[in-house]
Each structure stands twice: as C-alpha cells, then as structure tokens.
C-alpha cells in the first residue's frame, strides 16, 4: 500500500504518496519533474544520480523515498540562485568540464557537498571524493580542474 512522505526539495515542501521502497531518483524525476538528476546504473556505482540530503552527497538511485521522509534534499535545479551560477557550476563551464554532460549534475552535486565540508580541498581529497563519479567521456582532467578551481587551487 502506498504511504505518504514529506520532504523538502530545493527549499520547497513536497508531499508524495507512493511505495516506501521507491527510489528517491524516480520520485524526483517522475513525480516532481526534476529531471536534472540522472539515472546511470541504478545500483550506486556511477554517481550520476547524486543529490545532497541534509548536507551529505547521496546516491538517489539507491535511496528510498522512505529514507528521506522529513529530510532536506538539494538537486542540481536548486543550486544556482536566480541567474547567478554557483561557483562550482561556473568552474565546470570555465574548465570545459563536460563532453556529453550527462554525468555533470551528479559531479557538481558531489563537488558541492565536498567543498561545503572542505572548502579548500586538496588535490588528493578531490580525487578521493570525486572518484566514485564516472564520466564515460573520460573528461577527468577537466573535471578535476573544475573542482580545483572551485576549491581555489
């Protein structure tokens, strides 16, 4: 039987009636039309679906809606304030950190979560934190450069 869940997404309160086990990724995309968060593997192996839940980078494809009941979710759509891009978004443009760009929302959300706890993350910390976000275009040098730029390196 469907249950009702309440969550805050990008500062807005939402109430969703659905199965408790349904992945957050599906709810974001199909119920809230927030398609910026991507499916890449469905098993937490690639990072394309990364969102921030209560400040922590979280793989929304293996997170059930029940797990985020009452919690605060941030997605790529909520990152810029008005027309002003977040510094991580700007760094991704500046460093051409995208080819097809499909992995980019997940990369950016993961980088944002990292830089909130480690604003001046070292190169080593960046590689360690970003290593779980796959880019099949293998644009890793530019991706690393973008996160380094955002970290002020």
């Amino acid at each position: 039987m469907p249950d009702r869940f309440s969550l805050e997404v990008n500062g807005q309160a939402h109430s969703v009636e659905t199965d408790a086990q349904r992945p957050l990724l599906d709810v974001l995309r199909e119920e809230l039309s927030l398609t910026g968060t991507k499916y890449g593997c469905g098993e937490g192996a690639c990072g394309a679906c990364t969102v921030i839940v209560d400040g922590e980078a979280t793989r929304s494809c293996i997170t059930s809606i029940a797990e985020v009941d009452g919690r605060r979710v941030e997605t790529i759509e909520g990152l810029a304030s008005g027309v002003e891009l977040h510094r991580v978004q700007q760094a991704f443009i500046d460093q051409s950190a995208m080819q097809c760009g499909y992995c980019v929302p997940g990369q950016i959300m993961n980088a944002v979560a990292l830089l909130r706890t480690e604003p001046q993350a070292t190169g080593e910390q960046i590689v360690e934190a970003m290593d779980g976000n796959l880019c099949r275009c293998c644009n890793y040098r530019n991706l690393r450069a973008a996160v380094e730029q955002a970290a002020g390196r």
Partner: peptide, 14 residues
C-alpha cells in the same frame, strides 16, 4: 567552450 554548457550545469538540458 561548449555551446549549451549553462543548460548542462543547471540540469536544464533535456
């Protein structure tokens, strides 16, 4: 730079 980059970094590109 890539044309359409802003739509990608904001999650707006479909």
């Amino acid at each position: 730079n890539k044309v359409g980059a802003e739509a990608i970094v904001t999650g707006q590109h479909r």
